[in-house]
Amino acid sequence: SADYSSLTVVQLKDLLTKRNLSVGGLKNEWVQRLIKDDEES
């Protein structure tokens, strides 16, 4: 899986927004959300 934890907050928020995922919570929660989205898609 991609190394989301190395991305900036701005990059992570951009990815979350593009995938229609929530940008609520902490940075590590966003990373988990993106990883989960990868596994489900």
Rank of each mutant, 00 (worst) to 15 (best):
S1W: 14
S1Y: 14
S1R: 09
S1L: 13
A2E: 11
A2R: 15
A2I: 15
A2F: 15
A2V: 15
A2Y: 15
A2S: 11
A2T: 14
A2C: 12
D3W: 14
D3F: 14
D3E: 08
D3Y: 15
D3V: 10
D3M: 09
D3I: 12
Y4M: 02
Y4E: 00
Y4P: 01
Y4N: 00
Y4A: 03
Y4S: 01
Y4L: 02
S5T: 11
S5A: 14
S5N: 12
S5P: 06
S5Q: 10
S6A: 08
S6T: 12
S6V: 08
S6D: 08
S6Q: 13
S6W: 06
S6I: 11
L7P: 00
L7A: 02
L7E: 01
L7I: 02
T8Y: 00
T8Q: 03
T8W: 02
T8G: 06
T8D: 10
T8C: 07
T8L: 03
T8H: 02
V9I: 13
V9T: 11
V9G: 09
V10F: 10
V10K: 13
V10Q: 15
V10L: 13
V10P: 08
V10G: 11
V10E: 15
V10T: 13
Q11E: 11
Q11I: 05
Q11M: 07
Q11G: 03
Q11P: 01
Q11N: 03
Q11L: 05
L12E: 00
L12Y: 00
L12Q: 00
L12M: 04
L12R: 00
K13A: 07
K13Q: 13
K13H: 10
K13I: 15
K13M: 14
K13Y: 14
D14P: 01
D14K: 09
D14C: 12
D14W: 11
D14N: 10
L16Q: 00
L16M: 05
L16F: 01
L16R: 00
L16A: 01
L16I: 03
L16C: 05
T17W: 06
T17Y: 09
T17G: 08
K18F: 09
K18D: 09
K18I: 10
K18E: 12
K18Y: 08
K18A: 11
R19N: 05
R19C: 00
R19A: 05
R19Q: 05
R19P: 05
R19L: 06
R19D: 04
R19E: 05
R19T: 04
N20K: 11
N20S: 07
N20P: 02
N20I: 03
N20M: 06
N20Y: 06
N20W: 04
N20F: 07
L21F: 01
L21E: 03
L21S: 02
L21T: 01
L21I: 06
L21W: 02
L21K: 02
L21M: 04
S22M: 05
S22T: 06
S22Q: 07
S22R: 05
S22I: 05
V23D: 08
V23C: 09
V23S: 11
V23M: 13
V23I: 13
V23T: 13
V23Q: 10
G24Y: 09
G24V: 14
G24I: 13
G24M: 14
G24H: 15
G24R: 12
G24A: 15
G24P: 03
G24F: 07
G25L: 02
G25A: 01
G25F: 02
G25V: 03
G25E: 03
G25R: 00
G25Y: 01
G25M: 04
L26P: 11
L26C: 15
L26G: 15
L26A: 14
L26F: 14
L26K: 14
K27C: 08
K27G: 03
K27I: 13
K27A: 10
K27L: 12
K27H: 09
K27Y: 11
N28R: 07
N28K: 10
N28E: 15
N28D: 14
N28A: 13
E29V: 04
E29N: 05
E29S: 06
E29W: 02
E29A: 07
E29L: 03
E29K: 04
E29Q: 08
E29D: 15
W30K: 04
W30D: 03
W30R: 02
W30T: 02
V31M: 05
V31G: 02
V31I: 15
V31K: 01
V31N: 01
V31Q: 02
V31H: 01
V31P: 02
V31W: 02
V31L: 07
Q32N: 12
Q32I: 09
Q32D: 12
Q32K: 09
Q32W: 07
Q32L: 11
Q32C: 05
Q32H: 07
R33E: 04
R33Q: 06
R33P: 03
R33N: 04
L34N: 03
L34C: 12
L34W: 02
L34V: 02
I35N: 07
I35L: 10
I35G: 03
I35R: 08
I35K: 07
I35H: 08
I35W: 05
I35C: 07
K36V: 07
K36I: 07
K36L: 12
K36S: 08
K36F: 05
K36P: 01
K36Y: 06
D37S: 08
D37F: 15
D37I: 02
D37K: 05
D37H: 14
D38E: 07
D38W: 05
D38F: 05
D38A: 04
D38T: 03
D38I: 04
D38Y: 03
D38G: 02
E39A: 11
E39F: 11
E39N: 08
E39P: 01
E39K: 09
E40V: 07
E40D: 13
E40W: 08
E40I: 09
E40N: 12
S41C: 07
S41R: 15
S41D: 07
S41L: 11
S41Q: 14
S41W: 07
S41T: 10
